[in-house]
């Protein structure tokens, strides 16, 4: 077992969870799915720079080495953008629920329960 395997399998597990939740019929679950998928993708992007231990990208002429700062800055941007997306989708689904009286993604009426 290697560190690479742990990270790769972690990405795989997060992706699976994200996809499964993304395909659920309720808006809240879809938002959750997107959040998990974002974790997976951020970790995936990050892993593209390779794994380094104890070599943060702070410039020091005497540093023994450094990790790739580019994926890090891309992921930093991605985290923020996925936050904005999650927030917007969440509120959109809330508003849809208030308008339609159901939180089914295809607007199918809920047979069991009426709106709150």
């Amino acid at each position: 077992m290697s560190l690479e395997f742990l990270v790769a399998s972690g990405i795989g597990v997060l992706t699976s969870a994200g996809i499964y939740l993304l395909l659920r019929p309720r808006t809240f679950d879809v938002v959750l799915g997107l959040a998990f998928l974002s974790y997976a993708i951020n970790l995936f992007l990050f892993s593209m720079g390779g794994l380094e231990l104890g070599r943060p990208p702070f410039f020091d002429a005497g540093a023994p080495g450094y990790t790739d700062p580019v994926p890090q800055s891309l992921v930093l941007t991605a985290i923020v953008i996925s936050f904005a997306m999650t927030a917007l989708l969440l509120v959109l689904s809330l508003r849809t629920y208030l308008e339609a009286g159901t939180d089914h993604v295809d607007g199918e009426a809920d047979p069991k329960k009426r709106a709150p």
Binding site: A8, T15, G18, Y20, G49, F59, Y66, P69
Partner: peptide, 29 residues
């Protein structure tokens, strides 16, 4: 679908991480 997707993403990450690569890191550093 979820399992296939997860396996795909995981293996892709695995494949990249276990290889040597050339990056832009030097320039920024």
């Amino acid at each position: 679908l979820a399992l296939l997707g997860g396996v795909g993403m995981g293996s892709a990450a695995w494949a990249v991480m276990t290889r040597e690569r050339k990056t832009l890191a030097d320039y920024y550093w």
